[in-house]
């Protein structure tokens, strides 16, 4: 049984609770210390090979999240993974220390790779170490496939105390308006998701599974059971669905049904 999650930022469980309940765990949109409105619109654009977004970590901030959102999310009856973000190691540690006190939180996923905001000055290792010191909850590090040495970073965050990896976040991309040749997103560049990201995610999972002994959530262009099975064969122990949820909120159930058929025919990858 391969757990199926949503990719952070690709489902609002409070507006679509019936969809969230079809998941094995719900991953929240990234929560930062302070509220963020996000980037100006337009902030999505479809391309021929995927989708660009430049949402920019819109979220209510950790205080409103803990006070208003988390109690309602707990009512869903599924494990809640909270995606934590920030602009310094201290930001991540602050968010993690507050999440640490809440029984509703199953796991914390550190968003170390948002392509739409300025990256924190510290590297992934320093952020994971700061977060590790702030919480005893399971910590997953979500990494960018654009890192120059992804398996090396995976090994470093493992040594810093990460309990798992989420691979991958989006890649930076640009789409131009066909008439004006100007960027279609107000922010210019956005994060590319969808089918184009699938081979990238497979390669990242494949490389990191050989570098570290941590569970890996595979994310990137998963739209069917075959896609999920391939990520598991490459080394993932769970998969998360992102862009495919936008086109079909029933995709988690369909992936499970297709996996059930496939696993009768395909040798168990035995990861």
């Amino acid at each position: 049984m391969i757990p199926v999650l949503n990719a952070s930022g690709c489902l609002d469980a409070l507006t679509a609770p019936d969809v969230a309940r079809t998941l094995d765990a719900y991953v929240t949109k990234t929560v930062t210390p302070l509220p963020r409105e996000g980037n100006p619109p337009p902030r999505i654009a479809e391309t021929d090979v995927g989708m660009l977004n430049s949402i920019g970590l819109a979220n209510p901030g950790i205080d409103a999240f803990l006070g208003e959102h988390l109690p309602r999310l707990a009512g869903l009856g599924i494990p809640i993974w909270v995606s934590a973000g920030g602009f310094s190691a201290a930001d991540y540690a602050h968010v993690c220390s507050l999440l640490d006190t809440r029984a509703e939180v199953d796991t914390i996923e550190l968003n170390l790779s948002c392509p739409n905001v300025d990256a924190p000055e510290e590297d992934a290792l320093a952020i994971v170490a700061a977060a590790r010191a702030a919480t005893v909850k399971p910590l997953y590090a979500k990494l960018s496939p654009a890192l120059p040495n992804l398996p090396g970073t995976a090994a470093a965050v493992a040594a810093a105390g990460a309990d798992g990896l989420t691979l991958v976040n989006t890649l930076r991309g640009l789409a131009l308006d066909p008439a004006t040749l100007r960027p279609r997103l107000a922010a210019g560049i956005g994060g590319l998701s969808g089918p184009a990201l699938r081979p990238v995610a497979l390669a990242a999972v494949y490389a990191c599974a050989r570098a570290v002994d941590l569970p890996i959530v595979g994310v990137g262009g998963v739209a069917c059971g075959r896609d999920a099975l391939e990520l598991v064969a490459a080394g993932a122990s769970a998969v998360a669905v992102g862009t495919a949820l936008f086109a079909d909120p029933g995709v988690p159930g369909r992936i499970r049904a297709e996996l059930a058929v496939l696993r009768g025919r395909v040798p168990d990858p035995g990861v």
Partner: peptide, 22 residues
Amino acid sequence: EAPMACGYGACYGCAVELDGRL
């Protein structure tokens, strides 16, 4: 109207400024 990926509140792509906030 606004660009929408999902139509059901999942993607946050269709943000417009209403009542002074997106």
